[in-house]
Simulated scan of single mutants.
Amino acid sequence: MVKDKVLQELEKNKGIAVSGEALAQSLGVSRTAVWKAVNALRAEGFDIKKAQSVGYILSKDSDRISSEGIQSYLKHKVSLQINDVVDSTNSRAVALAADNAQYPVAVIAEEQTAGRGRMGRRFYSPKDKGIYLSLIIKPTMGTEGSLLVTSAAAVATAKAIREICELEAGIKWVNDIYLDGKKICGILTEGIADFETGQISRLIVGIGINCSSSDFKSKGLEKKAGALNVKGLERNKLIAEIIDKLLDIVESLEKGDSSFIADYKSLSVVLGKQVTVYPTPVTDIANKYDATAVDIDNHGGLVVRLSDGSFTTLSTGEITVRLK
């Protein structure tokens, strides 16, 4: 489509004027077709200005998520599906995974009406305020490697936020990203099994990031939830960096290399801290106990020291910790 090609050129030259004539010539279309494409993009929310006698300018402050914008930063070859509104990117990805698509595939939305977190919790996903991303991959590293992908996603996300946003994001075991003592990102990984082999045939890694906290107070979330709140944040760039870093780690896992666990440890905000362990969901307080988080093992498990001095490793469950 002419519209997509025009957007691609404007994304490549973000903040720089590109003449309608140059666009028309490079795309092999008429200037009228370019004009119609620009108007269609404006109607979709892209901030494109017309500089007299100079050309069209996609504002540097434009933060509309687009396939063209993400692809301009993406290193890996990934099929992108961009949506305005979905119920849940993970739910869409599960349905899409059954279609034998060309993997990896990323399902991304500006808004989720039924965003999902671990243990059936809702993930608040307001329009234009976050990143709601589900990446479908076809693992070849076996079940043990596949189980590490959630930890890999946490490392990829925390490192991408640190590099792009220059914020000290850290990982709260097992799969939450924290900033200044508040949760800014949740990760939900779901597997699809091959009934013939019993192996995981598809993995769906859902990543939800709060980019703005402007309406958290109205939802009663301001005490627990945080956000990036970075002026001039390019969500397209952050999405691309997360995908690239995650796929880099997945490629290493496929070669039997799980050295990223060292990064997981260095990014942890719980090691050395007193924690409360909930072997079952936090609503079941009868079985909770206190411990000290001391290490992350090679399988992503949390090693804790109990009050009697003994050690145990958590592979499931949840913890709470005083982070500040």
Rank of each mutant, 00 (worst) to 15 (best):
E222A: 15
K182Q: 09
A286G: 07
D61A: 13
T276G: 02
T320N: 13
A40L: 13
D248W: 11
V38F: 06
K14D: 09
A51F: 08
S62E: 14
I249A: 00
W173I: 00
T143R: 12
A152G: 08
E168F: 01
E110A: 15
R42T: 06
G130T: 00
L148N: 00
A93S: 11
V29C: 06
R64I: 12
K127R: 15
G309V: 01
N210W: 01
A97M: 04
E168Q: 11
V107Y: 02
L10F: 07
D244M: 06
S252Y: 09
D263T: 08
V277H: 05
E111D: 06
S67A: 13
G115R: 01
E254N: 10
G28V: 11
K75Q: 13
L179R: 03
V174P: 05
S310T: 14
R122H: 09
A17P: 05
S30I: 08
A152S: 12
Y178H: 10
S266E: 14
S151G: 09
T283E: 13
Q81Y: 11
G117S: 07
N298Y: 06
I319H: 11
E254V: 03
Y103I: 07
Y132L: 01
K231Y: 10
Q71F: 07
K273W: 12
F311Y: 14
G300W: 05
K237H: 08
K12C: 07
L246T: 04
K49R: 14
Q8L: 12
E9F: 13
T320R: 14
G317D: 09
E68K: 10
D63I: 02
A293D: 01
A169T: 03
L27P: 03
L133S: 02
K36D: 14
T283K: 11
Q102E: 14
C211K: 04
I207N: 04
D47A: 12
V303W: 01
R116F: 01
K172Q: 08
L246V: 07
V230A: 11
G317L: 05
N13C: 11
L80T: 05
A95R: 11
N298M: 12
V78K: 06
K129L: 13
F260A: 05
V282P: 09
T292F: 10
K138V: 00
Q8G: 14
N39V: 08
R64E: 09
L80A: 07
N229T: 03
K12M: 13
D308L: 08
G208W: 01
G117Q: 05
K255A: 10
L133V: 02
L228R: 09
K183T: 00
L203I: 15
V294D: 12
K77N: 15
S91R: 10
P126K: 02
G55F: 05
V2D: 08
T140L: 12
A114M: 11
V78F: 05
V294A: 08
S252E: 15
V94P: 03
S62Y: 06
R31M: 13
D84T: 12
A152F: 00
V54R: 15
I204P: 02
G220H: 08
T32L: 10
Q25I: 12
F123M: 10
A293Q: 03
G117F: 03
S258D: 14
G120L: 07
T313P: 02
